[in-house]
Structure formats: structure tokens, C-alpha cells
Simulated scan of single mutants.
Amino acid sequence: MNSTRGQQLNAAAVDRAFRDLSAGLQETARATERHRQHINRLNQQVFGMNQNPYEQHSKYTSVIMGIGYAGFFALWNQVGSGGSPKLHALAALFVGTSLLVFIVWEIIVMLNSHRARRASLC
């Protein structure tokens, strides 16, 4: 009878050990998932910090340029045919030059940004 009692105690101890081990593994899995989610959030923040300034600059520039050109054409429309043809030609030349310089500048900025990103990856 003593050996049966001892086997029952051993079986209960083994069962308790397996339950404790299972609970520990489940807690480890939960902690691992929390850490994985935390690392993903940090990666997104770091990636966002690297990307965000350029996107903000690009949006700001586009908005300012759009407002500037819209304002010019609204003013041109208000003046209408009241100005001399030389004045209209001169205004068109200045706006065309401004637009050309802006486009060239944006291409240069894009190329430099692309070159800097390639260099940072190497």
C-alpha cells in the first residue's frame, strides 16, 4: 500500500510540475508577444522619424507653391485685359522661369535624397 501511495504522490508531483511548466511557457509566450509588439512599434517610430521630415517638407513646398501660383493666376485674371501686352508677356516670362527653377530644384532635391538613402543603406 505504501508503494501505491508513493506512486500517487509522485504522479501528483509530476502533474503539478507539468502544470507549472505549462503555465510558465504560456507566460513566456505572452511576454515574447508583448516584446515583439513593442519592437514593432519602435521600428515603426524610427522608420517614421526617418521618413517624416522629407514628407512634411515635400507637402509644405507643394502647398506653398500651389498657393503662390493660384494667387498669381487669380491676380492675372482680375487684371484681365487691363494691362499692356508687354506686361502680360513679362509676367508670363517670370512665372515660367519661376516654375522651371522650381521643377529643376525639386529634381535636384530628389536626386540628392535618393543618393543619400542609397549611401545610408550601404
Rank of each mutant, 00 (worst) to 15 (best):
G48T: 10
N43K: 07
F73P: 02
A116G: 02
Q45K: 11
A12Q: 14
E33Y: 11
M49L: 09
R117D: 05
S98Q: 12
V95H: 02
A31T: 11
A74R: 06
G71V: 02
Q26R: 10
C122S: 12
N77L: 09
R19Q: 12
H38P: 00
R16A: 15
T28E: 14
L121I: 01
Q56H: 03
V109L: 13
H57M: 10
K59S: 11
Q26D: 13
S98G: 14
A17S: 06
Q44L: 12
H57W: 09
M110V: 04
M1A: 11
Q44W: 08
G24W: 00
G82K: 06
G6T: 03
L99E: 04
N50K: 05
L75S: 08
L42N: 06
A92V: 07
V101Q: 07
M110C: 03
R115D: 07
L87V: 13
G83L: 12
L9A: 13
S81L: 07
A31V: 11
V14T: 10
R5W: 01
Q51C: 03
I103W: 01
A29F: 02
A13Q: 13
F72W: 04
N52S: 11
W105A: 10
A17F: 03
L93Y: 01
A70Y: 03
V95L: 15
N43G: 11
Q51A: 13
S113I: 02
R19Y: 06
N112P: 00
D20E: 15
Y60H: 12
V79W: 08
N2Q: 09
E106F: 00
F102W: 09
R117S: 13
I67H: 07
T61K: 02
S98E: 08
R16G: 03
V63I: 15
S62V: 02
A12M: 11
M49V: 05
A91R: 00
A92K: 08
S58R: 15
Q8Y: 02
K59E: 09
V101H: 07
F72Q: 04
R19H: 09
R5T: 10
F47Q: 13
I108R: 14
S113L: 14
S58E: 07
G68S: 10
T28A: 14
R36G: 08
G6V: 04
Y69S: 13
E106G: 00
F18S: 04
L42I: 04
W105S: 12
R36C: 03
A116M: 09
I64V: 15
G71Q: 05
R34S: 04
E27T: 11
S113P: 00
P85G: 02
R34M: 01
G80L: 01
P85C: 01
H38V: 01
G82E: 08
R115V: 02
Q56R: 13
A74S: 13
L42V: 14
G80A: 08
R36H: 08
A13S: 09
Q45C: 04
N40M: 13
L25E: 13
A13T: 05
M110R: 10
I64N: 05
V101N: 04
Q44S: 09
L21P: 00
S3V: 08
M49N: 11
Y60E: 11
G6N: 06
N2S: 12
T28K: 13
R16S: 10
M49P: 00
Q78P: 00
N40C: 06
A116I: 04
R16W: 03
Q56P: 00
W76C: 01
N40H: 05
G48H: 04
A17Y: 03
R16N: 04
S62P: 00
L100Q: 02
V63C: 02
V14I: 07
